[in-house]
Amino acid sequence: MKKSFTSTTRFRLAKSSFFFYLVCGFSLVTLIPLFLILWELIRKGYAQFNPSLFTEVAPTSMEAMLAHISGAPIPGGILNGITGTILILSLAILFAIPLGITTGVYLAEKQDKPVARLVRSLSDLLQGIPSIVIGVIVYIWVVKPMSSYSALAGSVALAIMMLPMVIRSTEESLKMLPTSLKEAGLALGGSYATVVLRILLPSAFSGLFTGSLLAISRVMGETAPLLVTVLGATTVNWDITRPVSAASLLIWEFYNDPNLAGLIWSTSLLLLLIILGINLCAKSIAKRWKIQ
């Protein structure tokens, strides 16, 4: 009797440790692609990862070819891409974040209103629209009427892609706040608007901020919608009504030109590092500013 009991126990312990190692093992497997990608980018990109990457615009095909023949590293950098990405993203943030946050507030406050349910479903659907489709729609809406590719058009496309993420994170972080917080604000005689602006939004700030950061890092690497909206540019341009370049767009251009292919890796490495940085930043902010 006693023996069968211990053997069952032993079997259970074995089973439990087997599952423990299985879970650990598979978790490690998921890390492999990330490290392989990073390794590959560092290995191939470090040679071109120099100060001129940040200070010079992308070289022409001819310049790169001449350097290649003489055995020198490819001259130039991706300054036009970096500035373009900054310009497009800042505009996209300007459009998407205020709109997304106000919509999120509405959804969190009027959870069961038919309009709120409709908006919530539509915003979920928006998240599922392929980015190139958003790109061509924005081409019709913005590029055609302005009869020019522009940073503005690209930022509209990216803003549309950011919206669902900002809306959802706002709604979720506001819903996590206890109702007593809103009641306390109103019980002190605050108007609805001041309670939302001065109590609820600040209390949910860490959630809003992380959500917005993640949305930014998500669209930062988008290429397809930019292809049909901002076109690309060989010089640094801060005019929102004219075509600009973007870091992700440059990777596509380098890929299409055998002479420039050497710049793909350093550009990708930079983009990946920025996005990883933003993600880590978002995580630590969420942890540090979390309100108990």
Partner: peptide, 30 residues
Amino acid sequence: RRLAGMVFQRANPFPTMSIYGNVLAGYKLN
């Protein structure tokens, strides 16, 4: 609500405000 102040079952100080700010919250909200 200004004339009839309310205290709730669970203490609910505003988490983003200091002790000082919490006491003055009513003025800020109004």
